[in-house]
Amino acid sequence: MQRWDRIEAFIEVARLGTFSAAARHLQVSTSHVSRLIGQLKSQLGTTLLYRTTRQTRLTDAGALYYRHCRHLFDGFREAEEAIVDFQSRPKGTLRLTCATTFGERYIAPLVNDFQCRHPQLEIDMHFTNRRVELVEEGFDVAIRMGVLRDSSLIARRLCERREYVVGSPAYFERAAPPHSLAELPHHNCLRGSRDSWLFEINGHRREVRVDGRWRANSGPALLDAVLKGLGLAQLPDYYVTPHLARGELVPVLTAYQFTDTAVWAIYPRHRHLSPKVRQFVDFLVDHLPATLQGEGSFPR
């Protein structure tokens, strides 16, 4: 190892032009650099440098030796950079879970784009409307929507999300649009997987229990039912904005709309430094908002 120290000191002196500059770069004393150069001169049996008070120049032997040794150290640096790059690349298997419709429609295409950039990565996507326990079930990331409950998991906000209470023009020909939450019991409230709808009253979150003659644990089925005039429904923006823009659905109770919801990436704390998790979440932050906006927009 001592010989490599001597060669490195010589290369830096030749590259930077002075012993003092080489010493600063190597974070050693000038006398230490001078000693290493002297040892290298004795080892090779020839003078490599002409040193004066003003400058340092290579001898012919020194120039020849520098040309060969420089390539060696360039190779060492490239090897170190390759290791750093390898350690920072996403690798292994990325296991993620998301609600079915949102995952199939928006997350899966972005996951596929991410793997195109990192073909060495293996992907395992699991779409379900069941609340998955990340640590117990071995998932790296979950994409969740709405208001998060307290958790020891790390949550990163990916983009905004709003929910609308909507009905079709055909439904409102039969029933007057509600103007207060107290009027909801007079309407057929189409329910998904929840019995309560989320509202904001005087700056506070409030869940209101609703009831009706229709229920399904499917967002697309719920959207179809409300479009066909069967009742009112509360659905997130990515379902309804195109239909609102075309007048196929009408928003109601907008004064009570709860706005503090979002789409989140959730992951265990011990996965935080994993390149596959960190870079995938960064990728979603960069691309998911534009993907959702591409679906159309409605004034909020």
Rank of each mutant, 00 (worst) to 15 (best):
Q115G: 09
L121D: 12
R144D: 11
Y171F: 06
S152K: 00
L121T: 13
R157Y: 07
A175D: 02
R149G: 09
C116Q: 15
H126Y: 15
R162Y: 12
I123E: 13
R117Q: 15
E173L: 03
Q115M: 12
P169I: 03
G146T: 05
P119S: 13
G146V: 04
N112R: 15
V147G: 03
L148Q: 12
V111Q: 07
R117K: 13
C159Y: 11
A155D: 00
E122S: 15
F114P: 12
P119C: 10
R117N: 13
V141H: 01
G167W: 04
C116P: 00
V165A: 07
D113A: 15
T128Y: 12
V147M: 13
V111H: 06
F139C: 11
S168C: 04
R162S: 13
S152Q: 04
G138A: 07
R130H: 13
N112V: 11
C116W: 07
R149L: 08
Y164N: 08
Y171A: 03
M145H: 10
L158F: 05
Q115S: 11
P169N: 03
P109W: 07
A170I: 02
V132I: 15
Y171C: 01
V111R: 05
P169G: 02
A142Y: 03
F172G: 03
P169W: 09
E173K: 09
L134N: 02
F127G: 07
R131Q: 13
V147P: 00
E136I: 06
T128P: 04
S152T: 01
R156N: 04
F172S: 01
